[in-house]
Design a binder for these strands. Structure first.
Lengths: 188, 188
DNA sequence: CGCTCACTTCACAACTTTGTGAAGTTAAGG
DNA sequence: CCTTAACTTCACAAAGTTGTGAAGTGAGCG
């Protein structure tokens, strides 16, 4: 049924990886970091070695190194030494979305601070000052909402992600078995 | 109390503008767009003319034009003709945060699509496929949560922003007066 | 003990982005 | 209807970003 079936599959996988990476890039992520992330994401064990990444993405080891450094800094991947070898494996962080939201949290705190200071500078009885104060409040509101949202997502999942039929708007046609977390930390 | 009080005030305002803009830039927004946005935000009427922007930010009219074009595209500012003059005024959009979230909504829809397709490509019984499907579901979840959040913000505001004690998790300690909307669409 | 492989760092070149001056376009006002 | 003021577009120069090859570093294996 497939002599070049593998090749076709690789081709399709690559298209998905590049498409996903392209979106992430557009959203502000560095290009190489996005590509590495997408490749890891699409890999069976959510983990790859430097050589595998370089090979699949057709980039130099240096580029892999740079991308991984960034992804480590923002806590999206971890590094594991492959036992009995001198190779590292880069592994998608278990609590991926948790980390992402946590990072957003820090940003919101910074923004809130700046806006509060700005409100003070502009004065409480100027429209501009009021606007700044209000926006600061909005960011604080969002911050708490995001935290609450993560809790609800956990519940949603725990309550059975597969019973999700009739989900949000028109029924998600996914059918995921394992969670992002568990899948990401899946057997290697 | 102030002979050069105006100069000091301008200085302080400028610091706030540049600081805010810098954060927005770091978050992925074009630099000029961020600076123009911040300047509008910190202005008393949430609106300025091209000349005012160019003067305050020390940039060319061309740069203002480019920034405004971008901000219009993403629906953050509107353009109004100043009656009895041939000048335009650029005005912060009334429902600023609503627009921002709406934009995010579109992004989430795109991501969900890509991930659903990816899940199909990878196959439902591979860990990678399951991961993609699960993530697609997560994005859909977030999308609805964001919408719900906006509704709650409206309630929160309507209920009196100052009675906000006992917010989400540990109570927000803000205390703004007028709403972002109302302030942004304030009298000119 | 030293060799070798894997990763990292560095300097540089290619590419992209960004802001400007100048020419072009449109519309108000004489 | 022509002038002029305001905004926009265009080509280009400056600045910044990104990925590579090559040299450097250090840990495991013989």
């Amino acid at each position: 049924m497939n002599g070049n079936g593998d090749a076709e599959a690789d081709e399709a996988l690559s298209r998905f990886v590049e498409r996903f990476a392209s979106e992430l890039t557009e959203a502000g992520m560095q290009r190489m970091a996005a590509r590495v992330f997408a490749a890891l994401f699409a890999s069976e064990t959510a983990s790859m070695t430097s050589a595998e990444l370089a090979g699949q993405l057709r980039i130099s080891p240096a580029a892999v190194s740079g991308a991984v450094r960034y992804l480590s800094q923002v806590n999206m991947v971890g590094r594991e030494r492959e036992p009995g070898s001198r190779r590292d494996r880069y592994v998608l962080h278990n609590e991926l979305w948790y980390e992402a939201i946590a990072h957003r949290d820090e940003v919101l705190v910074r923004w809130r601070k700046i806006l509060s200071d700005g409100a003070e500078t502009l004065g409480p009885d100027s429209a501009a000052g009021a606007r700044a104060a209000e926006t600061a409040e909005f960011f604080e509101f969002v911050r708490h909402e995001l935290r609450a949202m993560l809790v609800r997502w956990r519940e949603h999942k725990a309550r059975g992600g597969d019973a999700s039929r009739g989900g949000a708007e028109s029924g998600a046609d996914s059918g995921a078995g394992s969670g992002v977390d568990s899948a990401a930390s899946a057997p290697r």
